[in-house]
Design a protein around this nucleic acid. Structure first.
Lengths: 227, 227
DNA sequence: ATCGAAGGATTGTTGAACAATCCGTAGATT
DNA sequence: AATCTACGGATTGTTCAACAATCCTTCGAT
């Protein structure tokens, strides 16, 4: 399949160091892409030699990429058996939402700078445009931007990392749920209301709305899972 | 230096599968130990070949261990330059405490089952014993158990993981601070008060006390850092 | 003193090899 | 027929050796 030689060759001209990511990093990136895109479905097995050949890299390099993805919980290692695309069970969904409740709600109560709030607003508008265009994929992305922007208000690199990983895990799961075209649109009014409360400086109310949203979202997802 | 063949040989008798950790995992564990113990000081460089020889494993295996430690932020990778023991700057300390405020305080407001509360109490008593014995190392460990137990009340594997990583990062930094023998003892009364509020079911008060403790602790640590 | 060109050392990556482990299947046993 | 055991194939875990790419230092020239 597609090779990973995407980065422009370190050709002649530019003397500006661009920090080309390592091969292992590019492999991880490519796998992340396929994971998010849904090419690799949860539970699928990833064979080292196959991927190594497909991407034209060594098995050892694939192995390093696996280690990275495993640390992000996107794949699971079964010793001596191989790595598999992570599949979230009911407990995992609940746990992910627990993390989100902890982090997002606290971030909301802390508020953010005007630029941070503007970023939240921008994500809401992005969602509206996606809905208008009927683009579900973009709608999901916008929703993740919305929640990412909320956490970003805390300006904490570590919290941002945690949140990014959790959102990546959710994206992995959503390929079952997104069959419902209205899944994201349903939450647009919530995002709008939360954002307005935030812009008005009513942080506690915004946090309460966000909490209610998360609870409802979890229930919906659990229902989809149970079907 | 010391080899890593610690696990009892997969001898004859036992048919019970014990899941021997992989070599890479044992290397990571050994490095974690040295990191926590202070043998490896922040900023120190870890040369692949040296460690490979010292532990009697291959360079590739060391590399896998590095990847794991890097994902835990215990070491930092500088591309083409090597990996270094992470050293926390002022921003990092603040960030770590931000994470702790988010997670610990929320967990406290959520409360926990009687067993979970008992675990918190046990950590407090552990700290008292360590103080009585004048054992600073044990005091630090007890303190980490205390805060770990608070987060454990949320019964969230992912939050526990995040907290464990943050505590590991702090341990890395504390080797400067622990010169002050009273560093941990100073916080014993706080832990006691927080625990009592928790046991009394006064979650909000316990959370407020915890928050105040975290703020004070951060200030102290920042002061130590600045000296 | 500044700059640039070797030189050496270390990382990044590859390829091949082998041991260890797992899985499925075919036979043997009851 | 069902269960157990042994075997074989496939994949992972780990090692080793090599080489390219990159960085740091030193040396020398300007």
């Amino acid at each position: 399949m597609a090779t990973i030689d995407s980065a422009p060759a370190p050709a002649s001209a530019g003397r500006l160091r661009v920090a080309v990511p390592s091969v292992a990093e590019r492999v991880a990136q490519e796998l992340r892409r396929q994971l998010a895109e849904g090419t690799l479905i949860p539970g699928a097995r990833l064979t080292e030699s196959t991927i190594a050949e497909d991407l034209g890299v060594s098995r050892n390099t694939v192995r390093e990429a696996f280690a990275e993805l495993a640390s992000e919980r996107l794949v699971v290692r079964h010793p001596n058996r191989g790595v598999f695309v992570a599949s979230l069970g009911a407990e995992d969904i609940h746990d992910v939402y627990t993390v989100r409740r902890f982090i997002e709600v606290s971030a909301m109560r802390g508020g953010g700078s005007p630029e941070d709030v503007a970023a939240v607003r921008a994500a809401v508008e992005e969602g509206k445009r996606a809905a208008a265009a009927g683009d579900d994929e973009a709608g999901g992305t916008a929703n993740q931007h919305f929640h990412g922007a909320i956490v970003a208000m805390a300006r904490s690199p570590r919290l941002n990392t945690v949140m990014a990983q959790v959102l990546a895990e959710m994206r992995l799961f959503f390929h079952k749920a997104t069959a419902d075209a209205l899944f994201y649109q349903r939450y647009l009014p919530d995002n709008e209301a939360i954002c307005e409360a935030l812009e008005a400086g009513e942080l506690d109310r915004a946090a309460d709305l966000l909490l209610a949203y998360l609870d409802r979202s979890e229930d919906n997802l659990a229902a989809v899972h149970g079907e």
